[in-house]
Design a protein around this nucleic acid. Structure first.
Length: 466
DNA sequence: CTAGGGTTAG
């Protein structure tokens, strides 16, 4: 069986139809002969001409990611106009730039324009578009484009297949991904690269098939494919998620012995694994080891560490990590601060939580109403209702409307302190501001009044709101 | 120029 025949055999297994609307849509690229059809040039939209050096600048931009989508579109339109046409690679770079910005639909749409204007494309172009479809969870369209590759007489590369395999994994079709992977080997279609193996290993990780992941690591070597740091990191992460941290440490030793250096991702998985087992001593040891190896902590690993300290009831240790991060110019996301504040409030140290709020603000992050509610709730539980009220005012001043739950918390707090009249006042203020009390509000009001034997008020209060 | 890995809330 020839290789080409083998390829065609693969297709119907994964593509619902070779004659999908998509393929018809790209009709011109399937059957075009790569000559520019001048009749169509009249329809090319016009743009304001750009200075050549600016053009060059934008071309370079496409490799890093454009500042604005508009830049990419203008550049594209100009590239359509240029004669002689720029090499395909320039168009590929532009599409790749859009992929970096996660503008998958736009990239597909520009590709479709290229088809319409008979701009020549190559396998890289098609690989990029297949990747776009995969990212849009349309791996089926990806397979349709594989058909296009065959029809145009191109030869799919290992990148083409890797993209499709990872597209299947992305859609949680790991069994299908493995099937395609096995068939590629069986038909001798392409020799899988280390990336191919890594994609499959990551699929196994996703489905929790740790044993199979370890086995694949062993078997790829037998096929003469050297694992790299990504392979090891993925398998180590598998083991850590399964609480097999000591096995993971063995693999760390193995990769080091083979001269594959661990990186910050390796340690993120390991530290996370030891955190989940509350083995904080091992975490400290790993952190020192990172230091020795000159591996700088990044925002991911710091978030994991802060999270662990907070869960262990040590928010001050977490705060210390956050402060160090900020000093190094690595800014944690809002959720990390929320966890710290939660940690302090849980211990009743609401003032320290508020201090964290200030740190968060200093990095340009604004608290949302959820964060305020944690603090307000914390103050109320510590019977510092005035501080809670102060915060709720601040919240309103920042344009965050206190939720009904916020009012409930404060009213409940006032009742608990025996400040019955104020609690009642706040309740009616809340109603007058147009907030509809919920069942919890009514229960708090009734409880509070009845406890103080304000039975008549309790009954009339309920009467008023019903 | 195209393919692969680590965190996380209500």
């Amino acid at each position: 069986m020839s290789i080409r025949n083998a390829s065609f055999k693969l297709l119907p297994l994964f593509s619902s139809s070779l004659f999908s609307p998509l393929v018809l849509h790209f009709h011109s690229i399937i059957y075009s002969n790569n000559n520019i059809n001048t009749n169509k040039n009249d329809h090319i939209p016009h743009s304001n001409p750009t200075q050549p050096h600016l053009q060059q600048f934008l071309l370079e931009k496409s490799q890093l990611g454009f500042d604005k989508l508009e830049d990419a579109l203008n550049l594209f339109v100009e590239m359509l106009h240029m004669r002689p046409l720029l090499p395909v690679m320039k168009f590929n770079q532009l599409l790749a730039g859009l992929v970096k910005m996660k503008q998958y639909s736009l990239a597909v749409s520009l590709f479709s324009d290229m088809c319409y204007f008979s701009i020549p494309v190559d396998v890289s172009t098609l690989n990029t578009v297949i990747n776009c479809f995969c990212r849009l969870y349309r791996v089926d369209y990806g397979f349709s484009l594989l058909a296009v590759i065959f029809k145009r007489g191109f030869v799919p590369t290992v990148v083409t297949y890797n993209t499709l395999v990872s597209g299947l994994v992305l859609r949680d079709q790991v069994v299908e991904a493995e099937r395609l992977f096995r068939m590629l080997i069986m038909f001798g279609e392409v020799e899988p690269s280390v990336v191919t193996y890594n994609i499959i290993v990551s699929g196994l990780r996703k489905t929790g098939q740790t044993f199979e992941a370890v086995n694949l690591l062993k078997s790829m070597e037998k096929r003469g494919c050297e694992p790299d740091s990504v392979t090891y990191n993925t398998v180590i992460d598998c083991l850590c998620k399964e609480k097999l941290v000591d096995h993971a440490l063995d693999l760390l030793g193995e990769m080091c012995n083979r001269g594959i250096l661990p990186d910050v991702m390796t340690y993120t998985s390991l530290i996370q694994g030891f955190c989940n087992l509350n083995r904080l001593g091992d975490v400290a040891r790993l952190l020192r080891e990172m230091d020795v190896r000159n591996i700088l902590p990044d925002v991911y690993i710091c978030s994991v560490i802060v999270d662990a300290y907070c869960r262990e009831g040590m928010p001050e240790a977490g705060e210390c990590v956050v402060k160090t991060m900020i000093q190094r110019g690595v800014y944690p996301p809002a959720i990390t601060y929320t966890k710290l504040m939660d940690g302090y409030c849980f211990r009743g140290e609401v003032d320290r939580a508020v201090a964290v709020l200030y740190i968060m603000r200093s990095t340009g992050l604004a608290p949302d109403s959820y964060v305020y509610n944690i603090l307000i709730d914390g103050f109320c539980r510590m019977h510092k209702v005035d501080k809670a009220i102060e915060l709720s005012r601040k919240m309103s001043a920042e344009g965050l409307k206190p939720a009904i739950e916020t009012y409930n918390t404060i009213i409940h707090g006032l009742f608990q302190m025996g400040r019955t009249v104020e609690a009642q006042k706040l309740f009616y203020l809340m109603v007058n501001e147009g907030n509809k009390p919920n069942t919890a509000s009514c229960r708090i009001l009734l409880d509070g009044l009845l406890k103080k034997q304000y039975i008549d008020e309790g009954i009339s209060g309920i009467h008023d709101i019903s």
